[in-house]
Write a protein that binds this DNA or RNA. Sequence first.
DNA 1: GGGTCAACCAAGCAAGCGCTAGTGTAAACG
DNA 2: CGTTTACACTAGCGCTTGCTTGGTTGACCC
Lengths: 192, 192
Amino acid sequence: MNVINESPRRKELTRQAAQLFVQEGFDRTTVRMLAQEMGIKSGSLFHHFRDKQEILAAVIEEGTQNALVIAREALDRGGSGADARLHAMARAHLETLLTDRNAHVVALYEWRRLDPEARAHLSHLRDAYEALWEQVIDEALAEGLIHGDRFLVSRLVMGALNWTVRWYDPEGPRTPDDLADELVAMITRRPA
Amino acid sequence: MNVINESPRRKELTRQAAQLFVQEGFDRTTVRMLAQEMGIKSGSLFHHFRDKQEILAAVIEEGTQNALVIAREALDRGGSGADARLHAMARAHLETLLTDRNAHVVALYEWRRLDPEARAHLSHLRDAYEALWEQVIDEALAEGLIHGDRFLVSRLVMGALNWTVRWYDPEGPRTPDDLADELVAMITRRPA
DNA sequence: GGGTCAACCAAGCAAGCGCTAGTGTAAACG
DNA sequence: CGTTTACACTAGCGCTTGCTTGGTTGACCC
């Protein structure tokens, strides 16, 4: 068994698993379905992953890690004003939701299926990501761009963003940029 | 079988099922677990519900119907200004999320487990509820209380609200009123 | 050119699943 | 009184589940 291994083969298998988990849900996706999607037999699956749970953890880890990287890049690259940084974060968030859509949907819906150890590990990753948001929101508060409770505002904003996976249609007329603009406009106050 | 029946016994069973569905998820909740929670044997369960799916549908229907009733009452009772009505809707939404928490969590997480017929039926209920929101948001837009795209704003707002089930702690210091205030303050613009 | 090793397969086990069939019983009804 | 009705029980069928076991294959290595 490869256990902690990060082979390219495993990465590809993880990507395919994410797709199935989205379509069917984790519990309804059998190891036989996973194996077929991957073009192997169900037994061979356990050469790459210790058990079914580990596949779920791998899917979620992949998505969260990417989100973190993209958000950090966006902040490093972006402008210096709170408004620009708010925009950059929102856009980065929505872009990840597109490119790694499957992984994020799985993370949102199947988080509770993780066993305690995996959950603890992945919680750290997620916390790191949310810390970025709170930092940017702190800056916006400091500049007077938005008002209110730091904790509540960041939760409400992340809720609005995360919820987009439930209704956003990439084929539709709206780009991630549009959404980011609309969101930032909605929560920031410029004199009317 | 009672099939379409709405006996008080069935209502109580539905409430208990909701609790288990939240704890374990629909797929992981076995009919034997449900029966034990209800104090009967697994076979007896199918006297009240045609199959497991019907229990899920009953749980979600219950929650959505209550949300609709409460929201309508809040709007009828509430003031006439867009600001007051926005507050009333937000407060009503958060209150339902508290009193019928289990049912709503199930509705959010397990919606996709519904079979097509049940989903079609419940979609109508949900659409009716969302129509209330869009109406209130239209009023707020007309009054210039908020700006932006009607569709996007309502989705973002409902996202922020629905997401609260993932982090809101009823035992914590914040009341649903606090949340509603914060949300409305965040999205409305009063001259700074 | 023997040894190593990742990757895969065939076969199947033990457990658990949703659901059914057939029966019992006590209260309600005419 | 006999019949119906609501609710519960026991027993288990047929199937699927996650996972294990023991073995095969082909590419690479000193």
